[in-house]
Amino acid sequence: MKPGLLLGLFLVLTLKLSAQTDSVTFRPNKINQFKLVPLPAIGSNPANGWLFGLAPSATWYMGDPATTKMSNFVGNFLYTTKKQWIFSSRSNIFLNENKTILIGDWRYFITSQPTYGLGSSTPNDPIENPNQPGVWWGEQQMDFRLIRFYEAILKRIGDSKFYLGAGYHLDIHSKIESFQDEEITGELEFVHDRYNSDLGFDTDKYTVSGISLNMVMENRDNSVSPYEKNFGWIQYKINPTFFGSDQSSSLLLMDYRHYINLSESRKRHLIALWGMGNFLVSGDVPYMNLPGIGWDMFGRTGRAYAQGRFRGESMVYTEAEWRFPLQQNKETFGGTIFVNAASFSSKTNNEKLFEKFNPGYGVGLRVMINKQNRTTISADYGFGQKGNSGFYLNVNESF
């Protein structure tokens, strides 16, 4: 069955189930009215350079705010100084009385970014890989296009904080081209091409298409900018060839976030903790579908490093952030101090998880533009190892 047909069937099934199980009543002049922030985007990060365009965000309620959590959407419609086009939408939608959650991640990229090889020990500058003679190690440029459609529907278990459900996931990478800058000489093979050819994947286009089983614990007071409680997500993704994948595979994602309030009178003063693991369980996936830094749903892992700076068959990530208000009696301005670390495995370089960590740290400024819904503009600067650093401008908290 073709991925496009699966996508259509999944959309029809999602809409049908939602219509059958949740009746939604909108009440004019209440807080559940749709609130859109059409934010102009002027920012910078290591993977894209300077970005220009729109980064709209929206919050709304799909039912009575007393019994329904706030839904949110974040979009990007951007052009960058590296001649990239980035279109994306990410959403968490809570239907009436939180009976159903819809989690969406849709993207279309005409983009480029460097890759450095697999594992946590990859250098910045390109050299020959001592563990893989004849192959580049370190920075290598890549152009590619990406079509991504991820959508999951989860049903609440009774009156608990737990949800079970299924999802459909499609990634199509195409028009992939690896190259080196003109001033770099050498006849070595690109790591992306060697990895794919060794495992029987094409080097210029590949597809991963499959379904997922999901369990979510949603206990946060607000998914846009949490002040307390916790969130957990376990996802087992299966990518069989009869769903359109080039090869069969499976991956496991585990994500947990905890928010410790430091002041009852100023709930914005808190410690936020995040732990995540992403593991290739069976089979093989193409190079760009391996777990990588900055490739989580909202692209927030690894502040201090460019998206894709580290990649491997398995990934473990952890982060801690101190969030605090900067005004005595107002909530408009806030600050943050964060530290993070990631570890990646690589069969090619005989590198195991936890053998090496890549730490990052930094500071950030928060501007709350909608106090009722806690919509926030975040600006962070992160510092990593070996001269890696970056500026990050986003909508809402990092996690």
Score class of each variant (00 low, 15 high):
Ala320Trp: 10
Met297Lys: 12
Lys267Asp: 13
Gly244Phe: 06
Thr203Lys: 02
Tyr256Ile: 11
Tyr227Phe: 15
Ser263Cys: 14
Glu313Asn: 06
Tyr256Trp: 13
Ala320Asn: 09
Met297Cys: 11
Met315Ser: 09
Gly308Asp: 02
Gly312Ile: 04
Thr203Leu: 11
Lys267Val: 08
Leu273Met: 08
Gly210Tyr: 02
Val208Cys: 06
Gln235Met: 15
Arg257Pro: 08
Ala304Gly: 13
Ala304Ile: 11
Trp322Ser: 10
Val216Ile: 12
Ile260Met: 07
Ser223Asn: 12
Gly302Pro: 00
Glu313Arg: 00
Glu321Ala: 11
Tyr259Ala: 02
Phe242Val: 03
Met288Gly: 00
Phe243Thr: 02
Leu213Thr: 00
Tyr287Thr: 13
Thr203Asp: 15
Glu313Tyr: 05
Lys267His: 14
Lys237Thr: 06
Phe298Val: 03
Ala304Val: 07
Trp295Thr: 01
Trp295Asn: 06
Ala320Phe: 13
Val224Tyr: 12
Leu270Thr: 03
Ile238Ala: 06
Leu262Gly: 10
Gly294Asp: 11
Trp295Val: 05
Glu319Pro: 00
Arg220Ile: 00
Lys205Val: 12
Phe298Asp: 01
Asn261Pro: 07
Lys267Asn: 13
Val216Met: 07
Met217Tyr: 15
Ser248Lys: 14
Ala272Asp: 07
Asp221Tyr: 07
Arg303Tyr: 13
Val224Trp: 06
Ile271Asn: 04
Ser282Ile: 12
Arg257Lys: 15
Phe298Lys: 07
Ser249Lys: 02
Phe243Asn: 05
Gly232Pro: 11
Asn222Glu: 12
Ala320Lys: 11
Met276Pro: 04
